[in-house]
Computed example of a mutant assay.
Amino acid sequence: MKLAHVRLLAPNIHECFLFYRDAIGLEVRYGDETTPFAEFATGGRQLRA
């Protein structure tokens, strides 16, 4: 069994999106600060927030 992705639920997607994109520097695969969720590239895995 492999871990395919991790999904984090947060009360403020706008702040979370900006943090993962700008502060951590993750590449955005889907979404932006206005969508209900976003997906980020994290090397061989994906992070969905």
Rank of each mutant, 00 (worst) to 15 (best):
R7E: 05
G44F: 00
R7M: 08
H5T: 01
A38Y: 04
F40P: 02
A10W: 14
E27Q: 10
R29D: 04
D22G: 00
P36R: 15
R21T: 11
F17C: 01
I13C: 03
D32L: 03
Q46Y: 09
A4V: 07
G43R: 12
Q46T: 06
I13S: 06
F17E: 06
L47N: 09
L18Y: 08
D22I: 04
L8S: 04
A23N: 15
G43V: 00
P36D: 13
R48L: 02
D22M: 05
R29T: 04
R45M: 08
L3Q: 05
E39W: 08
Y20M: 01
G44E: 08
R21M: 01
T34P: 07
T34D: 12
F37R: 14
L9D: 15
D22R: 12
D32F: 01
T35N: 11
R48H: 12
L8R: 13
L47T: 11
D32M: 06
A38R: 03
G31W: 06
R29W: 03
T35V: 00
P36C: 05
H5W: 05
R7L: 07
R21H: 15
H14W: 02
P11T: 15
E39T: 07
A49N: 09
L3A: 03
E33S: 08
T42N: 14
L26R: 13
